[in-house]
Design a protein around this nucleic acid. Sequence first.
RNA 1: GCCGAGGUAGCCAAGGUGGUCACGGCGGGGGUCUGAAAAACCUCAGAUGUCAGUUCGACUCUGACCCUCGGCA
Length: 308
Amino acid sequence: MIVITGQTATGKTNLALKYAQKYNGELINFDSRQVYKHLDIITGKDISSKNQYQLLKKINNFDIGYYQIEINQNQSQTFSIKIWLYDIVKPNQYFSSYEYIKLAQYIIKDIEKRKKTPIFVGGTYFYLKHLLYGFDYKTPPDFKLREKLNKKSVDELQKILLNLNKDVALQMNQSDWQNPRRLIRKIEIFSLKNSSLKSKKEKINIKPKIFIGLKFKNREEAYQKIKQRVEKRINQGAINEAKKLLEMGYKKTDPGLQTIGYKQIIEYLEGKISKEKAIENWITAEIQYTKRQYTFMKKDKNIKWENV
RNA sequence: GCCGAGGUAGCCAAGGUGGUCACGGCGGGGGUCUGAAAAACCUCAGAUGUCAGUUCGACUCUGACCCUCGGCA
């Protein structure tokens, strides 16, 4: 197995495609935004309009399939490579690392059955971490509870958790203790009706043969690349894409639209900021994201870093 | 040139009868990370236009100067 990860806009997919040619591979996306249908231009899916999604199988609400993309090596040679795990769910559907891993494991088996090499490409280290190193999945989300808890203040959530499980509450770090999402998840886990569920932990410890992380050599480089990329996406019709999604009935609060690019463009479409400001904010958000990505990823000592 | 308003960190911006020299937000640096992660959250560092004067003490008062923005010329 090969894994290509790293900061956004560093050319992960291109590198992955090279490996795909060399090792007879197929790509598996692990980008948490590209799993959504219709989010194409802004999330930077490497497909064109002539690519058709090939549906392999429906598992629950998930459309598992691939895009077949062609690469012209030179005039005479063309490679055809599959990319899996794009377009799995609608922008308003719930999706999580749990679902991701189930699907990824299924695809790995499928690829290996055909004697090909799975090549994971993406920037969502949260998903990758769980895929490679395992995860103790024991409590599914309780959306009713979340909805209720989302209305509470951090203060109230802290009190609820203290009553539920004092030890866990006191062990939380400073950041998580102030973080409503983390508090809600903990409450979810320790609330009575869920506590009896059995652990589904699977022992996983996958060691990729090649595990590369791409990062920018400095901030200036990141700024230039990201600026170019955002401008390109604007020219490709990013604004229309966002508008179209709203016209289709998706809301800005849907999980799929909680995405860099959409958030800023929607503010523009709502008349809150100018187009120029939206673009500027988009670029800034993207740079901030690259920083968070590296902060998280650099703790993984198995990644071999390459500067771009 | 005259009249008015104003100059507080990279940007936006609050403040006070002169007394721990100053509220925030953005941006920036550094982090957190066990079913929402392109999310959410934590943390740190930055400032009173210039020069004089009044005063025990001025970012706050006075004067000059330099800029900026309106209006009149």
